[in-house]
Design a protein around this nucleic acid. Sequence first.
DNA 1: TCTGGGGTCCTAGGACCC
DNA 2: TCTGGGGTCCTAGGACCC
Length: 469
Amino acid sequence: MRSTASVLHLDLDAVFASVEQRDKPSLRGRPVIVGGIGQRGVVSTCSYEARVHGVRSAMRMAEARARCPHAAFLSGRFDAYREASTLVMRRLREESPLVEPLSLDEAYVDLAAGSDDDLSPDAVLERVETLRRDITEITEGLTASVGVASSKLMAKIASELRKPDGMFVVAPGTELALLEPMQVRAIPGVGPATAERLRRIGVGTVGELRQRDEDELVRLLGSASGRSLARLARADDDRPVVAEREAKSISVEDTFPDDVTDRARLEGVVDTMARRVGGRLRSAGLSGRTVTLKIRYHDFETHTRSTTLAGPTDSPTLLAASAQGLLAATDLSGGLRLVGVGVSGLADWVQDDLFAEPEPDPDAGTTDEPSTGPEPAPRSPDPGPVWSPGADVHHRHHGDGWVWGAGLGRVTVRFETRLTGPGPVHTFAAGDDALTPGHTGPTRPRRPDELTAPSAAERSSDEGLGAGR
DNA sequence: TCTGGGGTCCTAGGACCC
DNA sequence: TCTGGGGTCCTAGGACCC
């Protein structure tokens, strides 16, 4: 916690709905609800006119329709929202070089970063007034709520208190008095589950929370949450504003209008999703190691399965093959309402020496990628991998070792390779027990029986590359 | 009429290593 | 020689946020 109110939190008011009202004058003054329009849709954002009728974010669309039948229901134009967001973030960066966007409509700004500006309450107040006016002007009508305080916690709470279209500068020294009577849910990070646990031990307000010692909260909520909550209840928050936060995962998911049991159809969906994730990785210049398949059954029970590859990849084909392998091991009885594909373990480099393009396409003709088919590799000097039609595993010579891309599910994998330089062509076929996803080895490709039982000497020499894990 | 999609962070258990 | 302790990686799930 600082001695000056120099952490600013800005929140654009109901951006999605506001952009729609701005662009379509007929919607002004009317309830506008943006979200999933289908049977299983939920409300993403709604205008304040709709909130009067009890419509809320994350509410089922059917319920929103029942509460507010005369509203305009829209599915959203994300490019327009992003454009508005970009203008706002640009304006915030004029305020300070240290801007931390949290989403399209929210950001922290460190007013104390690298400037010798006047941070007295009066000066800050004036600055924020100008900022809010400018934002409305450059976005042609959007409004923002702003809180400024000595910490992220208090700045966020302050902007929340003055929504919509307001501002609040919390004078340093008054934080505890402001916090004391509030419900614990006002603290960002305290959701329904945590609030219920606290309620059961007789804690409803932040003041009551502050009476409890840290050890008790740690026992109740775990180490990280307990410790952080004990501090936040005392307005003790020194989290810095961080400008550049790197993405940790990229994912795509979809809820079907009706539950799906047809495996072939799911395979098609998963393939498309994995390729879309790969495309997003690629355009972001990223690659990832862990592929996750997410499924949700008809009864909303949700599971994830993941596999970690030997090295990061951005290859749509490899991602699709990995996700497909995970799907193959999944029970579909009862039907799925959702599937999703994600990648984590992101690196900002691409291991193209391992998985270089062009790639053969095992699903030639059924995908959106141009199919070149397996290319016969030149014999020397380094022929690279040779693919068999239908291969589910790929590998490349890398340094002193061989890296296997993926060994998947119950399918029989068939692959062939040539050793570097002139030499015989080795062809192998193997079942799933012969290869594990991401298998790495420092030696030549081995026959299936060798792969399943590497010698002790081999195992120890494999250490550096993590073979056989 | 049951409950979106894109994320982040945390926890816990098991494998494995030293 | 019946049993350790720490650290890391991986997988799965849960809470939470906008």
